[in-house]
């Protein structure tokens, strides 16, 4: 099984509006590095939502790890979600939890031991340059700092798939490159990476990356 993600003729419609995504078909290879790009409103976030199982398609087939997600019973989906790390476009940090606790959340959900959690979270906090802000609440962090917490939370479990929606929108080019190196390091360890971005400079930063281009809900 080399195709970790497969879409076949996928369509997505919100309510009665015209289709936001139409006839989307593609396959992602395990261990690949992918950029998803396209103008604002093209449907990048919508496509990623299908990937991280926040949304069912209106039609078509979505396959993750070889299994059909459309017909998968609801109560089995958490197991698939735990294999996917997500950096949300709007971060979605939990406002009453510290940076440390937010990053620890996926490990807690998966039932890891406290001692192991503390060590891994502390290491990663240092890596994203937030070693000094361990106990800070999200609202006391800058936009870029919040984004780094969101990224750390997505990669802390070393997921099989990393999905990042505009992960560098709020950081300076130097930090963007540093975060990209983090994704690459993870990718080297075997994680399939999908990054949605407008940032052409960022896309040129990864030599072996593939690019998917969305335009008005269709893949170019």
């Amino acid at each position: 099984m080399t195709h970790i993600i497969q879409f076949e003729n996928v369509g997505l419609r919100y309510g009665n509006a015209p289709e936001t995504l139409s006839d989307i078909s593609f396959s992602l290879t395990r261990g690949g590095f992918y950029f998803l790009t396209g103008p604002s409103g093209a449907g990048k976030t919508s496509l990623l939502k299908l990937l991280y199982l926040a949304q069912r398609p209106s039609r078509g087939v979505v396959r993750l790890f070889g299994d059909d997600m459309v017909t998968m019973p609801r109560d089995r989906l958490p197991d698939y979600r735990r294999r996917i790390g997500v950096v949300f476009q709007d971060f979605r940090l939990i406002s009453h939890l510290s940076a440390f606790e937010n990053i620890a959340l996926p490990l807690r959900v998966a039932g890891h031991k406290e001692a192991a959690i503390a060590q891994r979270v502390t290491e990663l906090l240092a890596w994203v340059g937030l070693g000094a802000r361990t106990d800070a609440l999200p609202q006391t962090l800058s936009g870029g700092e919040q984004q780094r917490v969101a990224i750390a939370r997505a990669v802390i479990t070393q997921p099989d798939v990393l999905i990042a929606d505009e992960p560098t929108g709020n950081v300076d080019p130097a930090m963007a490159l540093r975060l990209l190196r983090l994704f690459e390091a993870l990718n080297q360890l075997g994680t399939t990476v999908v990054v949605a971005t407008h940032d052409a400079q960022l896309m040129s930063g990864v030599g072996h990356a593939h690019t998917l281009r969305l335009n008005e809900g269709r893949l170019a």
Partner: peptide, 16 residues
């Protein structure tokens, strides 16, 4: 609700 949604997307099960 926001906490609940995030936990859900991070793979927490309904009973959890």
């Amino acid at each position: 609700r926001a906490t609940l949604e995030v936990l859900h997307l991070l793979g927490a099960s309904d009973p959890q």
